[in-house]
């Protein structure tokens, strides 16, 4: 009897806990993989389903990007300028769909995922959807070595021209 009471109390506490409240939504995405090229834009949709008995209010959907290979610095702000969406209330059993637009600014393999968390998220784990694997093909856009001849050559040509003119002027003045 005492053990049954303890189990019941634990169950009530678990159900009433914030983590349980967040678990009443689920997140799905409409794509599992994207293959694209550097600089290309792509988009996918995530759907938040309210699986709980009541209306889900104050949900925040957030997009994040991580490189799956070490040595690639990823600034998610460069990939998408609108990574946080504040969702309207979702009635029980209803869904909310969010379209995410991104631009591939690094080459490599990346995971893009959406996390949904309540506005009063302190201490609660977010609900995370499946990661979308994004493969961005390498495209060399900048040959850093090539800048030196240009950076030296343009001023050199202009400097020679300016110097030549100055010399010619000086000769003209001295001849007069």
């Amino acid at each position: 009897m005492r053990r049954a009471l303890a189990v019941a109390v634990a169950a009530v506490v678990a159900l009433a806990s914030p983590a349980a409240a967040v678990a009443s939504v689920s997140v799905t995405v409409d794509r599992v993989g994207v293959a694209t090229g550097l600089g290309k834009r792509f988009a996918f949709r995530s759907t938040v389903v309210n699986t709980g008995p009541g209306e889900a209010r104050g949900l925040v959907a957030h997009l994040n990007i991580a490189s799956l290979r070490p040595g690639v610095y990823v600034d998610p702000e460069d990939w998408s300028t609108s990574r946080t969406r504040y969702l309207d209330p979702i009635p029980a059993g209803a869904t909310a769909t969010v379209r995410w637009s991104l631009q591939a600014v690094n080459a490599g393999s990346f995971a893009v995922y959406v996390a949904v968390l309540p506005a009063d998220a302190a201490g609660r784990p977010p609900t995370v959807g499946r990661a979308v694997r994004v493969t961005v093909a390498e495209r060399r856009t900048l040959d850093a070595g090539g800048i030196l001849p240009l950076a030296l050559g343009v001023p050199a040509v202009l400097g020679l021209a300016a110097g030549g003119l100055a010399l010619r002027r000086r000769r003209l003045v001295s001849s007069v």
């Binding site: 550097l38 600089g39 610095y73 600034d75 460069d78 631009q103 591939a104 600014v105 690094n106 856009t141 900048l142 850093a144 090539g146 800048i147």
Partner: peptide, 11 residues
């Protein structure tokens, strides 16, 4: 240009 870590947007 010598910052080889420039990504597409930074370029």
């Amino acid at each position: 240009a010598t910052n080889t870590a420039l990504n597409f947007l930074e370029q």
